[in-house]
Nucleic acid binder design. Structure first.
Lengths: 243, 243
DNA sequence: TAGTGGTCTAGACCACATG
DNA sequence: ATGTGGTCTAGACCACTAT
């Protein structure tokens, strides 16, 4: 009986890619665990190892697995919470990167604003948890964040004490709600800071801030979290290669 | 006699990649022209077609060539002048992208500022051409640019009438100076506009602007041009995927 | 030493683009 | 019809990691 979720008209290596991707999303192997070896997969799926290799190379390009030469092929852990900081430069005088800390400064359950409902694919009046969070480096406030989560899916967070959330939210989502953030899309813009945010960040009024708007997606592609992060534009730096 | 510029200790496919990359940089084939077919390369270099494929796939990943199924493998044309506008959103009310126009508003030959000399790998007191350029969309000024070029290499531009430069500089560099821009590195920051720039761009003083600092490299990797472009931060928008 | 991925070969056959 | 790249096979041998 042919496997569901796999299109038989596709090339073999893509069929295997889709199958493995589905199994990874279904948590058949935990992040960090090894998937079967090339030889094993070529046997169980009745295809040449070269074809298996190609499927796995595709998965690597998509960031789902990692390979190490004599060791094996492993499901990649999604751990990119700090990647936000690639847009800002926060380092000690010696150029050492500094570890950011987080404090939750507000939490309430509200009706989803239109923009949030759209981004999270929620019904117009669905309820969401709003978190206000301040991120600090070296005890200096550097980023103010507004975070929105579907109240239904994240109801474990409505009760838990915010002091126990820790510095990183994505591990918390996984621990408390069983939701794993696998990818995200960010959009950067610039605006001038509001009075409330200026107070939080210790900035003068009308200072320009960079706004990073992020939608975080689960491993099945559903939007889980919407957040806006604001930081002083003077601290902002981003580099890109083009060709 | 073994080929220079290729390391015999590397895997075969990487040796071929290096060889082809060197030949492309040396303009053995013009941009847009086809390189030899897989079969031909496998014959002339005495290796299996699978190995040739792998070399070419690497070149594709690096952006040096493009392939189309039944047609062949072609040297990629570097035509990314407009890519600067990927950081800004300039479109008509209907969402149509608008074609930018350029005006050279200043040109002089000066001693290279320290930062420019460093970026272009010039001696501390080398002379450079400084161009001031205004880019407009729909007759509205949107970007003010300071452009620096090594006076020696670009001396054809010191005399030519700036009205004849046209809207795009990189084709001009190629036509007048035989220099081809193949890649670039950009760094984005935010600052408040100076009085002179505010006048040029039609902005109020102290408006926040996004600064795009670009070093453009030739096909052999030498830095050719250094430029700073400034545009109103309110028009700035940039998106990125992360995982 | 056993098991893994990394390189390489020498084919076959298919799908696409062009004259 | 010809020539191109795209898929797939079934091996061989090498290099790295672990025990």
């Amino acid at each position: 009986m042919p496997d569901q979720s796999v299109d038989g008209r596709l090339p073999l290596y893509l069929q295997l890619r889709d199958l493995l991707a589905a199994q990874i999303r279904a948590q058949k192997w935990q992040p960090g665990q090894a998937i079967p070896s090339e030889a094993e997969l070529s046997q169980t799926h009745q295809m040449a190892v070269g074809t298996v290799r190609r499927a796995i190379e595709t998965l690597i390009a998509e960031g789902l697995v990692e390979r190490t030469h004599g060791r094996g092929t492993f499901v990649r852990k999604a751990r990119f919470d700090n990647s936000l900081f690639r847009f800002f430069r926060f380092e000690s005088a010696e150029g050492q990167p500094l570890a950011p800390r987080s404090v939750i400064v507000g939490r309430k359950t509200i009706e989803a604003p239109r923009q949030v409902a759209e981004a999270l694919h929620l019904k117009p009046h669905a309820r969401v948890i709003e978190l206000l969070r301040l991120r600090t480096v070296d005890d200096q406030p550097v980023l103010a964040e507004n975070i929105y989560l579907c109240a239904q899916r994240f109801k474990a967070l409505a009760d838990k004490a915010p002091e126990d959330f820790g510095d990183l939210l994505y591990p918390l989502y996984e621990r408390e709600c069983g939701l794993i953030v696998a990818s995200a899309r960010e959009t950067l813009t610039v605006e001038t800071v509001t009075a409330a945010q200026a107070r939080l960040l210790g900035l003068k009024e009308k200072t320009p801030v960079v706004v990073i708007e992020r939608i975080a997606f689960g491993s099945d592609g559903t939007p889980l979290e919407w957040r806006q992060s604001r930081g002083a534009a003077s601290k902002f730096r981003y580099s890109a290669e083009i060709r």
